[in-house]
């Protein structure tokens, strides 16, 4: 469980932890668009500088960010190779009978890898510094206007919150089932991918069954505590913007201006 880093919250008291989750969510959302505005070395350098600064401000170990990049490393490498081989333009740097690597190909490969890296690091920063509960609260509030077009915003946020609440429980359950099957001689780690998938069926079936049972019991427990949807509910947790959140808007606007000025 501890190996999974994506989506994990790292408790702390840094300035990033103190920001309102809505502000962080909106910032990251618009920042993703900003990344796509960058198109030259100067703009990417500004973005890198910004990301390094906020990593330092978050007071979170660098190794955690590196671990969060690991799952997408394959996609990054694949995209880099495609750009190196397929993008033409500029001076030919490396010529082989099968393909030629051009100057523009190298440039595009570096830029696309940078885009991916910055995207993943920013997404990780959001989850590292924001608890799941804060994130769902922020989503519920930000998606509030969609209620007018009958989107069940509260129900969606609650589903997300319950899903996050049950990840550790289901993980423990999976481990228990795996141990039980291993004790009976199940072989989960040998053979090709298809054999392994088949070997995992005795894990998945009891896991699904127990999850459905849990869901039913949870629904009854929620009903017993007077749950009947979002109508008439009050909220215990209140989110409040502070001057730090307004400062974040200012930083974003400065970034937009700088990137806009530097881009070709």
């Amino acid at each position: 469980m501890s190996k999974i880093v994506i989506g994990q919250y790292i408790p702390g008291n840094s300035i990033l932890h103190q920001l309102d989750p809505r502000a962080k969510l909106l910032f990251v959302f618009f920042f993703f668009f900003l990344i796509f505005l960058a198109n030259n070395t100067a703009t990417y350098l500004v973005l890198y500088l910004f990301v390094i600064t906020i990593i330092l401000l978050s007071q979170i170990r660098l190794s955690l960010f590196l671990r969060s990049i690991k799952p997408v490393l394959f996609i990054i490498l694949f995209t880099v190779i495609l750009h190196l081989i397929l993008t033409k333009g500029g001076e030919a740097l490396f010529v082989t009978p099968l393909f030629t690597i051009y100057e523009e190909g190298v440039r595009q490969a570096i830029f696309i890898a940078s885009r991916f890296l910055i995207l993943v690091v920013m997404a990780s920063l959001l989850t590292f510094t924001t608890s799941s509960l804060d994130l769902t609260d922020a989503l519920e509030i930000l998606m509030g206007p969609l209620r007018k077009v009958r989107v069940p915003v509260h129900e969606l946020a609650l589903m997300m919150s319950i899903a996050l609440r049950f990840i550790p429980t289901l993980w423990e359950e999976t481990e228990k089932i795996m141990n039980a099957q291993l004790a009976r001689g199940a072989n989960l780690d040998s053979g090709n991918i298809f054999k392994r998938l088949v070997a995992y069926i005795p894990i998945f079936i009891p896991l699904f069954l127990s999850s459905f049972r849990r869901a039913e019991e949870l629904a009854m427990a929620m009903e017993a505590r007077a749950y009947r949807g979002g109508v008439g509910r009050t909220k215990y947790r209140m989110l409040q913007y502070t001057y730090k959140d307004y400062f974040l808007i200012v930083i974003f606007l400065i970034l937009v201006l700088v990137i806009g000025w530097l881009r070709v």
Partner: peptide, 18 residues
């Protein structure tokens, strides 16, 4: 199977919010 929220405080608040 009867704890809904991801923290102690929020779970106690759940019924009251309802």
């Amino acid at each position: 199977n009867q704890i809904v929220a991801p923290s102690v405080l929020d779970d106690v608040a759940f019924g009251l919010e309802n």
